[in-house]
Write a protein that binds this DNA or RNA. Structure first.
Length: 148
DNA sequence: GCCAACGTTGGC
DNA sequence: GCCAACGTTGGC
């Protein structure tokens, strides 16, 4: 899962140990669908800092809830307000995430240099999705690199 | 700030 | 359903 560290860095997340943090604000259907259809409580999350000086994986988190409606879509004062969404027919759902641990920064350059990650969705050319699936094999490679 | 890549919108 | 215009993402 990508996040701009200005919004909620791994250090910000670490200040809320054991707490569920609602992953609000996703307004892309594919990313939503990954949360809605492919994530289950307990699933591992690679916590990726984007749009910053040193983009890369900065820690691990885990999925901490089933998918449920994003409250910000109903709030006219929110930048994520969606006039076409109603509580009866919510358009946007998300999961909660929970801090697991901070890691060293595994930079985007390092990730790109690893041939075993060549087909990872996050690294695909032109990939902009803020939430992408990680295969078990990719997870194993990444966690190995993180502990190096 | 630039720009490639991609998603969304809306007229037709 | 097509596709041009526009908006967003995100590395550099």
């Amino acid at each position: 899962m990508k996040i701009e560290p200005d919004e909620c860095s791994i250090d910000d997340l670490a200040r809320r140990p054991g707490q569920s943090v609602p992953w609000t604000g996703v307004r892309n259907y594919q990313a939503r669908n990954f949360m809605r259809d492919a994530m289950r409580p307990g699933d591992g999350v690679l916590y990726y800092h984007s749009s910053c000086a040193e983009p890369g994986i900065a820690g691990l988190a885990e999925v901490a809830s089933a998918p449920y409606p994003d409250a910000t879509q109903f709030d006219p004062a929110s930048p994520y307000f969606d006039a076409k969404a109603t509580p009866e027919a919510p358009r946007w759902v998300h999961v909660d995430v929970r801090f697991v641990r901070k890691t060293r920064l595994l930079t985007l350059a390092e990730l790109r240099a690893e041939p075993r990650l060549a087909t990872m969705e996050l690294l695909r050319k032109g990939s902009r999705l803020s939430i992408t699936p990680v295969s078990a094999a990719e997870w194993a490679v990444v966690t190995q690199l993180l502990d190096r």
